[in-house]
Design a protein around this nucleic acid. Sequence first.
DNA 1: GTCGGTTTTGGCAGACTCTGCCACGATAGT
DNA 2: ACTATCGTGGCAGAGTCTGCCAAAACCGAC
Lengths: 203, 203
Amino acid sequence: MDESPAIGIRERARGALRGELADVALRLFEERGYDQTPVDDIASAAGISPRTFYRYFGTKEEVLFGDLPPTSVDLPALLEDHLLRAGPWEALHQTLRHVAENIGTQRGRWSRLLRVVNTSDTLRAGHLEQQMNLAQSLIPTLVPAVEGPAGWSDLRARVLVHAALTCFDTAFSHWAERDGDIEMLEALDIAFTTFSTLDSVQA
Amino acid sequence: MDESPAIGIRERARGALRGELADVALRLFEERGYDQTPVDDIASAAGISPRTFYRYFGTKEEVLFGDLPPTSVDLPALLEDHLLRAGPWEALHQTLRHVAENIGTQRGRWSRLLRVVNTSDTLRAGHLEQQMNLAQSLIPTLVPAVEGPAGWSDLRARVLVHAALTCFDTAFSHWAERDGDIEMLEALDIAFTTFSTLDSVQA
DNA sequence: GTCGGTTTTGGCAGACTCTGCCACGATAGT
DNA sequence: ACTATCGTGGCAGAGTCTGCCAAAACCGAC
């Protein structure tokens, strides 16, 4: 009554079913599109009731995004570390390189995901929402490292972080669309260095 | 039967009701938050049926974003024009300065809107979605103007456009949060020049 | 002023996501 | 095997949004 023995068989079963649900859902989404696949269909395809589906995933989106491989490195900490050795922009660059390396090892899974995401407006919006949250978590770390005009550090930190995430996102899409042709890291580097060459392109 | 005489009284009435709906909705959203304000309440507050509401606005979001003052300058064309005289980044900067000037004349309305948007996750996501669409419309214009490594023009154009919109958005929020203290254009300029000083901040 | 045709409106029913509630069944530990 | 706990399924409900159809309002013409 005090505490469970250890892991518990139930929890492992729960994890298995969760994974199976995610698989089934992804397959259905690919076949018929995200918006055209009601939760009822996922549930019956997996042999459970819709109500139970919502006990495994709080929302329909979570069945897509919830079980991503643990990209969950502590990015703010990583950024802070890089800031010891480099300026804000380069630190952001290196931080996101780390994420890109992890992603680069799972080509197939990520392009499947991206393809599904692109079938739905709702879904793209949700994805952007996540990016916003990530940005919010990085900005405070960056603020002290930004130099410039008097009270504008906040603004500049926000700009840099959002721009960096944009670089990542754009490189990611570019890479996912050209399956195998290019390297994720190369695309990321190109994206980040776009701003270094700005002077030369300005008239 | 062939063609209506001219403007038609009905259409003017329709426009008036549309405006009134937007007003009522905005007021309710400010009082109780966007997610806590069902369409039924907006409808009854305006003395119409919910069904009719959806004839005026396709979605609940549209009642907020649908009637924005005509920011609808042809931004791609404006960008193309600026590209004749400046590099990609500066052209984007000037293009968005134009938008900022229009916005700057409607301080109150815009900060009300921003406050409402920040009451809802759904809403922020929707707003980002619009930005994506705007970006998509600007990218083709910018691609030919971007120089750099072989086949990377697409990627770099996307990065620049998204970064520019990020600058705008960030400057806008910054400005709206400090009602009156700062100038929209000044904030925008600061945001855009953040990247020009990158070299000096890099270690 | 009245008629005829068009437009606008409102109500109904429905799909879909998501939540609270409760009873039923399976499971785990004793 | 027994019991307490947990997972499950069904039901009802809120909320957004759509299709359908009948009633009402409206405009122009006679």
